[in-house]
Amino acid sequence: MSGSVGIAENGPEQPKEFAFTAENLAKAKKIVAKYPSGRQQSAVMPLLDLAQRQSGNWLPRVAMDYVADMLGMPRIKAYEVATFYSMYNLKPVGKHFVQVCTTTPCWLVGSAGIVDACKKHLGIGLGETTADGKFTLIEVECLGACVNAPMAQINDDYYEDLTPQNTVKLLEALANGQPVTPGSQTGRRGAQASSGPTSLHAQAKAAGVGAQALAAGAED
């Protein structure tokens, strides 16, 4: 493994300046106010997230500098945080940031096939962005949705119960700007067993839950 953490000479073009929009500034102030005085630095993570959202899902150096200066902390401390957490992107990503989970539970039920389907459909490898800038594909460690494995996170939403086929459909819909439904792609509700409810029938009935609802799984 070779590489370097830091601003690379051949890295992405870095914007020259960054400042929160008025709306985000108000949000940032609200976030900072949650922490006791003298502990404002604790707000670094939500503020970096806010900055990332504002700059198109990545964190240019100036944005990190801006957040660090705003919180009165050394800039290097913001870089440390931003490089530690994989949720901060230090270079630009596509409009749809596809993060396929390949940790053990997902892998056991076919995440390798999902990754392959994505690669093939998008024509890119892991860590790459499509030429039209619409998709970036990476593999990530466990995102904690193992019950509905295999799964992927695209921008803020989880897409679960993936198969190579429905993954391609999902990507096509995203590419065409059609609406997509986050959550299970097989119609499963929540995290109920794929074969329908298997226990507590009597209690559910006693609580007045209808048979149809039981079969479909209780709404929240």
Binding site: M1, S4, G6, I7, P74, I76, K77, Y79, E80
Partner: peptide, 26 residues
Amino acid sequence: ADEIAGAPEIGLLGRNEMVEIGTYVE
């Protein structure tokens, strides 16, 4: 650098096996 020199410009960047000491901005 943080404590004695008062020039907090070096940090531990990245995570796990990729962790590096650096200034990020060279």
